[in-house]
Simulated scan of single mutants.
Amino acid sequence: MAGNKLVTIKGTRDGLTLFLNDQCSWDDILLELEEILSAKHMMQEEHVVSVKVELGNRYITKEQEERLAALIRKYNKLEVGQIVSNVMLRKEALKWKEETDIHLYNKIVRSGQVLQVKGDLLLVGDVNPGGRIIATGNIFVMGNLRGIAHAGFDGNRDAIIAASHMAPSQLRIAEMINRADKMDEEGTPMECGLIDADGEQIIMDRISVISRYRSDLDVFERRIMNG
């Protein structure tokens, strides 16, 4: 189904997607959307249909969002499933940047010390026994990992831990723990730890096969190349 220049409606496998023109007034958008939704040929739906709203380069307030959702719910058993905008507030952008940045440290984390970051951690140095490193994202240690490493601290089970020399006293990813008694006491060079495909345990593998498990980590490479 297609509307005119202000509102375009497209049917998808998951429901409907509304594309709202971002170059006109919000009131004009709502008026036209109500005309389309109230049209007689739209009244045949008998089941609840999920609606995704694409705002383009437009930011709307919570009040505008609630008004839009109420208008959509008014007709045809439609329910807003997602509202997507290309625009975010500065506060949201700074939070996203913090959580997705790679934080680089050149130091030794000694016994009793804790290094914690939001996002990915790249440590050029060692983590001594009794030292602890924590990240909400992935952890990369360019040195000896002999202490405790906790990746995916906020629940990210896709996080990984990689080290030039892997001999930790404990690895943690999200809520899962792999203790030292399950690892080679001498440690292993160029190894990584991650949660297996079944989500039941932390497994160890060669660092060279990370791409097999986490193909999205090419983002890490692009960030380094782009400075």
Rank of each mutant, 00 (worst) to 15 (best):
S85M: 09
I102N: 05
H103C: 04
K52P: 00
I60C: 09
Q82M: 10
G137S: 09
E65D: 02
E65N: 09
T136V: 05
A151W: 09
G137V: 05
I133C: 05
V117T: 06
L55D: 10
E99K: 15
H150E: 12
G112V: 06
R146D: 13
G137L: 06
V80C: 07
R132E: 14
R67V: 03
S85Y: 03
T61R: 04
G130L: 10
M43E: 14
K97P: 00
W96S: 11
G143N: 08
V51Y: 09
H150D: 02
K118E: 09
Y59G: 08
A135Q: 06
I83P: 04
G125L: 07
N86T: 00
D126G: 05
R146H: 03
I72D: 02
A151C: 09
L68W: 00
L89W: 05
L121M: 09
Q64F: 06
Q44K: 13
G125D: 07
V49R: 12
N144E: 14
R67L: 12
K74E: 10
G112M: 10
G143E: 06
R73T: 08
L94S: 14
I102Q: 02
D101Q: 12
T136G: 09
E54F: 08
I134N: 08
N106T: 14
V51K: 07
V53W: 03
L68G: 00
G131H: 06
N76V: 01
V124F: 04
K97R: 11
R58F: 02
W96E: 14
K77I: 00
H150C: 01
G147S: 06
G130E: 07
N128W: 11
G143A: 10
A93L: 14
L121C: 09
A151M: 06
E45C: 06
L89H: 12
A93C: 07
A151Q: 10
Q82G: 00
S85R: 08
G112I: 08
Q113W: 05
E63P: 00
F140Y: 15
G56V: 11
E54T: 01
E63A: 14
L78S: 02
N138G: 01
Y75W: 14
I148H: 13
I83F: 01
A70D: 11
V53Q: 05
L78Y: 13
K107L: 15
Q44R: 11
I102Y: 02
V127P: 05
S50Q: 15
G112N: 12
I139S: 08
K97G: 13
Q44N: 11
N138W: 01
I60Y: 11
L104N: 01
V114E: 10
R110G: 07
P129K: 09
D120R: 05
I133W: 08
I133L: 04
P129T: 07
G137H: 09
A69L: 00
E92H: 13
V87W: 02
G119T: 03
L94H: 12
V49D: 01
T100Q: 11
L123P: 08
N76I: 00
N138M: 01
V114W: 03
V109Q: 10
V53P: 04
W96K: 13
V51C: 06
G125S: 05
M142S: 13
K77C: 03
R110W: 04
I108F: 07
Q44E: 08
N128T: 11
E46S: 13
